[in-house]
Amino acid sequence: MIVAISAVGKNKNDNLDGRFGRCECFHIIDTEKSNLRIMSNKGAASGGGAGIAAASQLIEEGVDVIITGSLGPNAYELVEKSGIKAYSCDMVPVQEAVKMLEKNLLTPIKKAGVAHHGISG
């Protein structure tokens, strides 16, 4: 299972970032091989449609699960249509978030958060 977590920084001990589209980077963890890749979030650099850019990036990476704070409506639509499971989590260290996922302690995101992101650029 490939898990993507929105994070505030590129250090592996960094915290989860509650924002999805405008987070600094994503930590991508393959739970079977337990390897970790960290990539910049393309959404952070885009003028508009940050959530869309971020979601498209993760869809292309073939992730199975996203852990973040909440998803804006645009990102939510893409994530849902791609069959990726999304979970909401507090701003805990990234590795902690993965443990919580494995222990089934996270709440699935069943609807889009407030239309913070993506009305425009």
Binding site: G47, G48, G49, I119
Partner: peptide, 23 residues
């Protein structure tokens, strides 16, 4: 189409191209 759009108004998701018209 999604790749070329500089405004992220189109995105590919699953078996669909999603259009975000305001963008």
């Amino acid at each position: 189409c999604a790749k070329v759009c500089r405004f992220h108004a189109l995105a590919k998701a699953g078996s669909d191209i999603v259009i975000f018209e305001k963008l």
